[in-house]
């Protein structure tokens, strides 16, 4: 059932030319150089250290690596990270139904 609804939503987004993050509830990552990073639509902090920040997503994980990372603000929906950002990796997991 979930798969059907997701397919329907994806199809609608393609037909109506909507941004995918709105339709599919995906995280939106805005990065300003290597200095600032905003992640919207995250699902919580998994790990935080000055070198890395792991965030949960709808399906999978996202890892921000860098040095002297600081979470400027954190809310239920978005995180604003500052510091020397060196990399952003996505680790999608294809668990069905999650």
């Amino acid at each position: 059932m979930m798969r059907v609804s997701r397919k329907l939503r994806k199809w609608t987004a393609t037909i109506l030319d909507l941004p995918q993050d709105v339709a599919l509830d995906l995280p939106r990552i805005t990065m300003i150089g290597g200095l600032q990073l905003t992640v919207e639509n995250h699902r919580g902090v998994l790990h935080f250290s000055p070198q890395s920040l792991r965030l949960a997503m709808d399906r999978g994980e996202m890892e921000v690596t860098g040095e002297n990372l600081i979470i400027r603000t954190i809310g239920t929906e978005e995180v604003f990270v500052e510091g020397t950002i060196l990399g952003v990796q996505l680790h999608p997991t294809n668990k069905p139904g999650v």
Binding site: G44, I74, G75
Partner: peptide, 11 residues
Amino acid sequence: TAANIKVWQIS
């Protein structure tokens, strides 16, 4: 974050 407590400048 879940309790909607606003913290900032976490380092």
